[in-house]
Design a protein around this nucleic acid. Structure first.
Length: 460
RNA sequence: UCCCCAGUAGCUCAGUUGGCAGAGCGAGUGGCUGUUAACCACUAAGUCCGCGGUUCGAGUCCGUGCUGGGGAGCCA
């Protein structure tokens, strides 16, 4: 007989005879002549309580079941006589699939996140991490649903790229060169004899690819892994993360912000509605204000202010910041936090940044000193989204490349798109892990990705 | 990469002025009970992060390295 997932059993409206459930033992309480065993199969947060009595032929073994063991039970789903759960299973037969030794590292008590990080292969078996990764899965689906409902096409941008600079951060090199004996020319490594005949890297953004497809399919998005070789050690950075990057043709900066705001609200609403059981765990144990924080995001209108105004607010605040702020300087973490956590107390979109602190592809504004960039800042997380209207004018783009010291040759195909039927277009990148941090109240990004990769850490 | 904090039983931690290594939880054994963070009793469990130094004596003081955490920079 086929097993029924615990999630479905617990949703049952009526008792059900002869069901089969399989899962892992979370806890067990022995009575004189029977045992309460709670099993979890990962289909939901809740455990299924099963009652095994001494009439079972292998009851002596069942009495010795340990936390973490795997079992299959068959029996009747009946209304529970005890308080605390609606349903339980009166067992007719139980198979012990595997018995976990008492060295099983997960105990029937709360563990610290730091400890669980050292056993990242086992932590999805805990309530909290099970919930995080169910929510992560649901959010991934919601992203695709959001874009599909709006007529966007999903683009698989390459993970290995030949662009030697896309304007963002340090790159991971991809090579098959033998480091013991590298091919050399004029004393330097000869990448023309490397696998691709040139230097290659892991992608830091799918944006340039997405732009090419936006200029063909209209509205597109990418959603995939992204790599940064930066030696950053913070609770908001990992070396490998997932990024969502929509790109829209015939779209200016303000419409770009509209999409960003709509998307964050859609995804937050989705989690509130579809993951309410898992979400309750975070409200209870992680962040007491989580529910109201999320409702605030859904209901409030994001504050939109030009960079110049943001700087004025910061100067007038009278706050003693560690870093001085004035026009031309990038906003520091403390500035972002002040704006979104203290001054506006809701998500803030800062736009029209000075051109000297932003990459070459952002569209130059008429004032000639700012570009059509926008960042969505949210309380606690900081920058959740970074985006811009792209420079669609060939001559401006070429001079911006020159100013930033990048070679036109490497971008010939990118420039081609401005040569043939160029149109105003915009897009942004959303850090998927930061979104999960936001909706679950999780403080460390390493806890919302299955096996985090950070400087000096690639175990598992 | 820089600044700050921490590292003691499986986990979370206490450890006085430098003077015999401790608790709670977990685990094991037994008991009790429609239990649910079960309860009661007993038992086992330690390279006090590594190396070097000061001292009659170091978990404790000094130096150094490693690991983890927080903050900053960079960014999503």
């Amino acid at each position: 007989m086929h097993r029924i997932k615990i999630h479905n059993l617990l949703k049952s409206e009526t008792p059900r005879a002869n069901i089969v459930a399989k899962g892992w033992v979370r806890t067990k309480r022995n009575s004189s002549n029977f045992s309460f065993i709670e099993i979890n199969d990962g289909s939901c947060l809740e455990n299924l309580q099963i009652i095994a009595d001494e009439s079972l032929q292998n009851y002596e073994d069942i009495k010795k079941l340990t936390t973490g063991s795997a079992v299959a039970v068959s029996g009747n789903l009946i209304e529970s006589q005890g308080k605390g759960q609606k349903w339980e299973v009166a067992v007719k037969a139980m198979e012990i699939i595997s018995l976990a030794p008492d060295s099983y590292p997960l105990q029937k008590k709360r563990h610290t996140d730091e400890y669980l990080r050292t056993i990242a292969h086992l932590r999805p078996r805990t309530n909290k991490y099970g919930a995080i990764f169910r929510i992560r899965s649901e959010l991934s689906f919601a992203i695709h649903r959001f874009f599909r409902e709006k007529g966007f096409r999903y683009i698989h941008s390459p993970i290995i790229t030949g662009s030697d600079c896309e304007g963002a951060g340090e790159l991971f090199k991809v090579t098959t060169i033998d480091f013991e004996n590298p091919p050399k020319k004029d004393g330097k490594i000869d990448y023309s004899r490397d696998f691709f005949g040139t230097e290659a890297n892991l992608t830091v953004s799918g944006q340039l690819s997405a732009e090419m497809f936006a200029l063909a399919l209209g509205d597109v998005y990418t959603f995939g892994p992204t790599f940064r070789a930066e030696n950053s050690n913070t609770r908001r950075h990992v070396s490998e993360f997932w990024m969502v990057e929509p790109e829209m043709a015939f779209c200016d900066l303000y419409e770009d912000v509209d999409i960003a705001e709509e998307m964050i609200k859609y995804l937050t609403t989705y989690v509130l509605e579809e993951c309410s059981d898992d979400l309750k765990l975070f409200t209870r144990f992680v962040d007491k204000n989580l529910q109201s924080t999320l409702e605030n995001i859904v209901q409030s209108e994001f504050k939109r202010i030009p960079y110049e105004e943001a700087v004025e607010i910061l100067i007038k605040s009278g706050k003693n910041f560690n870093f001085d702020i004035s026009f031309g300087k990038d906003l520091q973490t403390e500035h972002e936090r002040y704006l979104t956590e203290e001054f506006f107390k809701k998500p803030v979109v800062v736009y029209n940044y000075p051109k000297n602190i932003k990459p070459f592809y952002m569209r130059l504004n008429d004032d000639n000193k700012t570009v059509a960039a926008m960042d969505v800042l949210v309380p606690r997380i900081g920058e959740l989204i970074g985006g811009s209207q792209r420079e669609e004018r060939l001559s401006e783009l070429e001079s911006r490349l020159n100013e930033t010291g990048l070679s036109k040759d490497n971008y010939w195909w990118y420039l081609d798109s401005r040569r043939f039927g160029t149109v105003p277009h915009s897009g942004f990148g959303l850090g998927f892990e930061r979104l999960i941090m936001l909706v679950t109240g999780t403080n460390n990004i390493r806890d919302v990705i299955p096996f985090p990769r950070t400087p000096n850490s690639i175990e598992f």
